[in-house]
Design a protein around this nucleic acid. Structure first.
Lengths: 337, 337
DNA sequence: TTGTATGCGTTATCAC
DNA sequence: GTGATAACGCATACAA
């Protein structure tokens, strides 16, 4: 494979000047049909492909968007990515996914590379939304939007969902179903989401007037199926009288693990324990017992984040905006007996 | 945000020439500690970031690798990606994920963009391994390796797993467990994988001497949880006497759906139906009944594919290679009573 | 050790 | 309608 051919090669073969080739590429109307034909033929003959690096160098920025995400295995993030992908497509940009796998170092490497690449914009669900690395990106002139996380300042655009409200919705639903002992399953508390959902749960609980200690917090070390199973053992290990009759899980993976654990142990859902999940991922409705869950507008998150990052890139009057979406409870068999 | 600063700006501020700045960047040993200090300080002051486009233009190729994958929601592919990611990291390259979502048009758009971007190499699990678009990439000088698919020629490097053997392993295991009526669940037959796994199943069946019609093919329209549930209804709808006592599913998602359907309907696994899945994704071992499955060396696939694409990029004597890995059966409760 | 000059491929401006 | 030319930012060969 010889060196790829350039506009110069095309020009030589077509017997025209380099400028004309460029015109065929970028303003075909300015060039006569005859020469255009010759040029296009030459391009085909040589298998000419634009060199995007050179284009970018000239233009000052690339036609790429990137989404740096925490966990490619979590359908929540891939759904967000799908929304972003569609918005990117509509703007004639390509969206690339970068998997940080929850590691700050990898996240940092990707962000650095993307800034060097002069991408149009970056969406990121960061390991730590307050890490200075995000500020560095901005300082270097690359628009950046925080997805599914928030900061307590307004230095960045962000899109997120009201997790406190989500927590309220879940617990209010369980209260309506007559439960008076409820477990909150989730952790670690370092994750803002987990804290907010618990906070919402507590607010709803306080308003119910039930004793505080009947809302039991069962901590987990992560938001995974395996952790859900382990939490299930702990919940069902509580003595009959003090055992919760319902559980609100900080995400659906936990809820699925919990469901599996109960099913393995011969307990029934919602008979022995009602379950509410969070995220409403596809597996939630397809579970053995379809799962009640708090739905977030996932694709919408990605779409809006993309719009914001493009506004930051294109609009000189851009103002940072913190968008907060409203979650919605989807009731299914796991709480409806 | 003003225009990003360039080596020229750094040189001006540091009071040295542009070449010296470049040397600080690329051969720091060639420059005296004193001037190096000045230059580095200037870089910090200006927030200088290399322009990767310009670097690429100069170098002729980028420091990017890409994996164009079919389905970001399938853990199989994200595991492959993880293996590729690690190999890329070791070579000091960045791996970007492109989600074609099983759409040929999106796959084509991504491939075109990557070629224009002059990426170092592309890994792809294509919608159609024989589509001409793959040949176009190669013709344009970008190394490309096919992942988890094969072609019947040797125009490309590829890495795959021996699915015929995988099918044999699954059915041989069920035969050993004493089953004499088995369902193969999977489809559509347009997917090479599905065909190969069925082929392997048939080979093992033929060698067992059991009547052909006791290996029942239950077709599905895709390899998803939902399809698995639907297949479950059909299998259990078969009259008692002719009903299979075991099912071999073309992937784990189908198997999980099947498992859920049985559990919902009050049937037991493996009592009423033993189940073998394929892929051994994380959810397989974490399922309500841990799933027997055929494991593929997923990360290894990604790692090897990356090595091959880098060899194609760097080694003038590169020869295309079709690597075929050997699958392995992992027996768990879903077949072991 | 440091500085100068050239070219990578593209686009856009300006003559012709 | 077409052609010559400069510029984008960087890396390198070579000169000082």
């Amino acid at each position: 494979m010889a060196r790829a051919s350039s506009v110069k090669d095309v020009a030589a073969l077509a017997g025209v000047s380099l400028g004309t080739v460029s015109n065929v590429l970028n303003r075909p109307d300015r060039v006569s049909p005859g020469t255009r034909g010759k040029v296009e033929q030459a391009m085909r003959d040589l298998g000419f492909v634009r060199n995007e690096s050179a284009r970018q160098l000239r233009a000052g920025h690339s036609r790429m968007l990137a989404y740096v995400l925490l966990d490619a295995r979590n359908p929540f993030f891939t759904d967000v990515a799908e929304g972003a992908e569609r918005a990117a497509e509509a703007a004639d940009l390509s969206l690339f996914l970068c998997h940080s796998d929850n590691r700050a170092s990898r996240e940092g490497d990707y962000l650095a590379h993307l800034v060097e690449q002069r991408v149009q914009g970056i969406l990121v669900t960061p390991v730590d939304p307050h890490a200075s690395v995000l500020g560095d990106v901005r300082r270097n002139g690359t628009p950046l939007v925080i997805v599914d996380r928030t900061r307590d300042d307004d230095e960045f655009c962000s899109v997120a969902v009201d997790d406190v409200l989500g927590g309220r919705l879940a617990v209010e639903h369980l209260l309506e179903q007559g439960h008076t002992r409820v477990a909150f399953i989730g952790g670690p508390a370092t994750i803002g989401q987990v804290r907010d959902r618990l906070e919402g749960a507590r607010q709803a609980w306080a308003e119910s007037g039930l004793p505080d200690d009947q809302l039991v917090v069962v901590p987990t070390e992560g938001l995974t199926v395996v952790e859900g199973r382990s939490a299930g053992e702990r919940v069902m290990g509580i003595g009959r009288k003090r055992r919760p009759t319902a559980a609100f899980c900080a995400n659906d993976l936990l809820a699925l693990g919990l469901l599996q654990q109960l099913s393995t142990a011969g307990s029934t859902v919602p008979g022995d324990l009602a379950i509410v999940g969070y995220d409403d991922i596809e597996y939630a409705s397809a579970a053995a017992v379809p799962l009640t869950s708090v739905r977030q507008p996932r694709q919408e998150l990605g779409r809006r984040a993309t719009e914001l990052v493009l506004d930051e890139a294109d609009n000189p009057d851009h103002r940072h905006e913190q968008v907060v979406f409203t979650p919605e409870l989807v009731a299914r068999r796991s709480t409806l007996g």
